[in-house]
Design a protein around this nucleic acid. Structure first.
Lengths: 212, 212
DNA sequence: AAAGAATACGACCGGTCGTTCTTATTTCCG
DNA sequence: CGGAAATAAGAACGACCGGTCGTATTCTTT
């Protein structure tokens, strides 16, 4: 039934290709990514890639989707294991910084790189990136609102603004860590959020120093 | 002596080419920029560009320098006309947001785009971008320190952290304004800095609502 | 055992890339 | 006025681009 070895093998190949594509795209860009280059790095032929995706654009779209899945596994899922409220916001930020610091992707962040790459390039790829960014923003704002509802943040807080600030600290982290001093950058990104949440949260025990 | 019409004309041509290159680079990237494309947009032949720059890399480096000059004219110079201290910090941030909102460059920000493009591409271009970013950061930190020295910010302030936060608000502004709602983005970027400075500055009259 | 779909390959296409070379035009200086 | 230098243009190059084609191999289904 579903035990088709061809499909299973195909899926495995597809995922492996897309993981490589995500990493490679952070180095040379999602558009700068060439099929020959990708095929070489995987040890397959270029035409083999066309067996899975009809065009480069189809592969680019699939790569975006794979990057979203990777982001959810690596950053969102760990944060969801922390209790709701400011601790979850902090856990999300920490997971993100950790993702950058661990240099999982050679170019830092797939989304930061590609969104700047495509911000003046209309088309399906840009639309897909824009959707993903919108969902990420909505997710961040929801987490902030949860903290408000729990009484861990003031009720008159401008939630979207705080979400904006949190994301800004993260974006800047990956940008600066690659160009300037990484250690100072991560310290600023972490301390910035901690200061911000502590100034807003009535219960200081929720944001103790040591715990992540 | 220096009244060589050939050189003067060459300089004018060079500047015109570089202005176009800066704008084009924000659309397709500094590496994605092709000489034929640039020549076409200028109504010039491709080989005509090689009369001014021996290689594409030389042109890329000159383009970075031109972008720095443009940034200093458009953002730094207006800020320096504001009085030192928190008002100058605010003026700098406002000039930056205004630069993004006016859509001077089709791709938003030359430096944001190129620094993400080159963060995993070693070489002279990346080095030049890194230097420019370092100088910008040092400039921001100097402005913060001036505000501290003037008594407009607390003496125990973490200056580099505040500089980091200010730049983060700006970077996020250009990123989000191209992908999501521009108006909400600019409002967040402006309000974020205003809240931050007001919480730190003992004299509230320096940061009144209306004045820029 | 045979048919057929999924997967992968090498060869090749037209086009664009950065670069070089040769040639023509313009402009300054003696 | 005439030689030198700067500024262009055009043609051509080897390399690489995305994409197509025909073919071979593998595995499931009949």
């Amino acid at each position: 039934m579903t035990s088709d070895g061809r499909i299973a093998r195909g899926d495995r190949t597809r995922t492996a290709v897309l993981d490589t594509a995500v990493a490679l795209a952070t180095e040379v860009g999602l558009d700068g990514l060439s099929l020959a280059q990708l095929a070489d790095r995987l040890g397959v032929s270029k035409s083999g890639l066309f067996a899975h995706w009809r065009s480069k654009e189809a592969l680019q779209l699939a790569t975006v989707d794979r990057a979203v899945a990777q982001w959810e596994e690596r950053i969102v899922a760990p944060a969801l294991r922390a209790p709701r409220g400011v601790r979850r916001l902090r856990a999300l930020h920490e997971a993100r910084i950790e993702f950058y610091a661990a240099r999982v992707l050679p170019g830092g962040c797939f989304f930061a790189n590609t969104e700047f790459e495509y911000n003046a390039r209309p088309g399906p790829v840009r639309d897909r990136l824009s959707e993903a960014f919108g969902r990420w923003t909505a997710f961040l704002e929801r987490l902030v609102q949860e903290a408000v509802d729990l009484g861990e943040l003031p009720t008159d807080l401008d939630g979207p603004l705080l979400a904006y600030e949190i994301d800004a600290l993260g974006i800047s982290a990956v940008m600066r860590s690659r160009m300037l001093d990484p250690d100072a950058t991560y310290r600023h990104a972490r301390q910035g959020l901690l200061n911000r949440l502590r100034a807003l949260c009535p219960d200081p025990t929720l944001l103790a120093e040591g715990q992540s």
